[in-house]
Nucleic acid binder design. Structure first.
Lengths: 149, 149
DNA sequence: CAATAATAGTAAGGTTACCTGTCCATTTTG
DNA sequence: CAAAATGGACAGGTAACCTTACTATTATTG
């Protein structure tokens, strides 16, 4: 049995690696599109949203964002500066340690963050709706397994 | 009910977006590690393996790799040059079109490609083994759904 | 069938998302 | 208190792309 080039192409697209990559890209691009529709700044991107998810209401030290996000302090510093330029975040001195700066949301930033969480839930239920009843839970389990290969 | 910062951190890590990213990274890094153990050149990386998956035994035009991989011809050209340096691929003139070059595997490249396919299957069955009987098939379905969001 | 348009590939330089190396200021610690 | 550790910023580097611009060749069309 000879396989057409379409079938070969389909098989390639079905590999776990490619599916994971495509899924991640699609998810991220839908997410960015939706939060921009919610009024997020056009300069917002994957890296900046990643940083933002690590900032709690009370603020957090730059070095702690670095630990939580597995990035260097230098990279985080750069992204925090971009967030500062956009006006989503402020650097304030840490009262308990003269070396440290706390990164804290501005009103605008906090607002967008709430909308982002909302959008995240929307996307997750959209996916869940397209799966069998416990399909979403299974997906999460499977992804955790792959993530800890 | 107040949630500890560990719980909040766990919730963050459980978001679909982050799980997809982690899964993809883990998968890719395991894949690269394994094909290097199979003797792949140390210079091999995610981009190069991506290009390689688009090269069939009979060879393919650079522009067709670009279409299949959603990259520009320029980027593909660059990666093909790297593969050529490693010695996994050759550029040969397309007899049917004087403008075109065919990209074709060298013996070494073809060999590594076969090993890579093998490794890919290994990883996929390793994942399948950790899931319920139809869990892997479900995962593929779910990933396709997310990929076409 | 010559002129024009389209296509294949390359070259040069730009952007983005990181990282390393280094340095300063401020703690922390022996 | 001197030495080491920590928090952050600055400068410069790299990898994976992309855009712009160009040449060589093939296809089209008036």
């Amino acid at each position: 049995m000879t396989r057409s080039s379409e079938q070969i192409e389909a098989a390639r697209q079905d590999s776990l690696g490619r599916l994971l990559l495509n899924a991640h890209r699609a998810h991220m691009s839908v997410f960015l599109e939706k939060i921009r529709q919610q009024g997020a700044d056009d300069r917002i991107n994957a890296s900046l949203t990643n940083i933002m998810t690590h900032i709690p209401a009370e603020g957090i030290r730059l070095a702690d964002i670095a630990k939580a996000s597995n990035m260097t302090r230098q990279s985080v510093s750069q992204f925090v500066s971009e967030l500062e330029t956009i006006g989503y975040v402020k650097r304030i001195p840490d009262p308990s340690d003269g070396r440290a700066t706390l990164v804290r949301f501005s009103h605008k930033g906090w607002d967008i963050m709430q909308r982002a969480l909302q959008v995240k839930h929307e996307i997750e239920s959209e996916v869940a709706k397209k799966l069998t009843p416990d399909g979403y839970a299974q997906l999460i389990i499977a992804l955790k397994i792959v993530g800890s290969l």
